[in-house]
Design a protein around this nucleic acid. Structure first.
Lengths: 205, 205
DNA sequence: TCATTGAACAATTCGTTGATTGTTCACGAA
DNA sequence: TTCGTGAACAATCAACGAATTGTTCAATGA
């Protein structure tokens, strides 16, 4: 059993080495196999397809961000500040990563196209942290009551879509993105301080 | 002079007919020219390139939306309601259009790729209307004071990016998009009722 | 002078062919 | 059984000449 996960890990490591160096398209299964001293066919006993290797690779990257997020959520900042840092960390992390190696961007692009559900998993994971921050904010009074924090988290993600894989759908520089993200957060965080009821009253008046 | 604009219009009409029927890629300059009873070379006295024809086509489409927006802004709804309708109209308009003819989506994709500044022009135009709505809201008291309504408009656009050319970067259905847009608007419109100062206080407390 | 053409040029696309690569699977070794 | 191989197959990619198409421009006629 441990043997099996070891081999799997070995394949993943070899694949990541190559992909980060030569890119996903220019890395072949037989090359990965050769690096591991096995045949290409044998890889398929550990990964169903080449795409699954890319997915595992992306998962590994996300785990780093997730543990950073977990630490942030655990910390003792106030909820609005946590929310800000959360989004800025995400922006900086992905921007730096994708800016440094164009290879990772290639993987991100392919995954977004071929595995649309994978991105949803990521978002769902991220929402776990967002919900915790929202709940903290409600408890400490910095956010108004909301019936469904998970829904609110989804909406926050929708509003900050533009900053998720920035170089995939905009050609803004990091400072430009930071300025916009700050602006969007200013408005949305302000919105979270307003109780829904009072908003409905406002619209109905 | 009128002669010149007439010919230009004739070319554009012929081009749109063909592009809507066969798509941008499958429409050739000489076909357009033949439809107008002229040579391909002559088109270049009216359009600098084939891309410029696509741009003119997109501009024509946008004019329709713009006049709808102008009418909305002119109307006598309250600002928050105008803001909601503004975004929903944009969503419905582009969704319906791009959903009906895949040909228009092709043009949108090409334009987004080859003419990134064109999209910015569109956004700037849209902001003119957003600013008017924001100012109305400030006057009638439904929005808090803001020093720079144009900046706020930019941020609103950033937060609603996801809903602009929906089928270009998400595969959500219209009901799903509507649900999300409503949620995002609920939060951002609530945010606009909060004065910036009180927000700063909130964060500093 | 001005509008228009059509031949010429350059860039892009297309279609075909051969090679590469992802994936499967019957078989063998430990 | 479990782990692995390597040949076989199908899908994809690369290459490259041919054809198409976007664009320019000297020549023509109004």
């Amino acid at each position: 059993m441990n043997d099996k996960t070891d081999t799997r890990q070995q394949i993943l490591d070899a694949a990541m080495d190559r992909i980060l160096h030569y890119g996903y398209g220019k890395t072949t299964m037989s090359e990965i196999a050769r690096d591991c001293g096995m045949s290409a066919g044998n890889i398929y006993r550990f990964f169903a397809s080449k795409l699954d290797i890319a997915e595992a690779m992306a998962r590994k990257y996300n785990m780093e961000i997730n543990s950073a997020n977990a630490a942030l959520v655990r910390g003792n900042l106030e909820a609005p500040e946590k929310m800000r840092q959360f989004h800025f960390i995400a922006l900086h992390e992905t921007f730096a990563k994708l800016d440094k190696d164009a290879k990772i961007l290639e993987v991100a692009e392919i995954l977004a196209r071929e595995r649309p559900t994978f991105a949803n998993e990521e978002l769902a994971q991220e929402r776990v942290y967002l919900v915790q921050i929202l709940k903290q904010g409600m408890k400490e009074g910095s956010f108004a009551h909301m019936e469904n924090p998970n829904f609110t988290a989804e909406m926050l993600q929708a509003a900050t879509m533009k900053f998720r894989y920035p170089q995939l759908w905009s050609r803004l520089t990091l400072p430009e993105l930071e300025r916009e993200l700050k602006g969007v957060l200013d408005i949305t965080l302000a919105g979270l301080t307003v109780p829904v009821k009072s908003l409905e009253k406002l619209n109905a008046e």
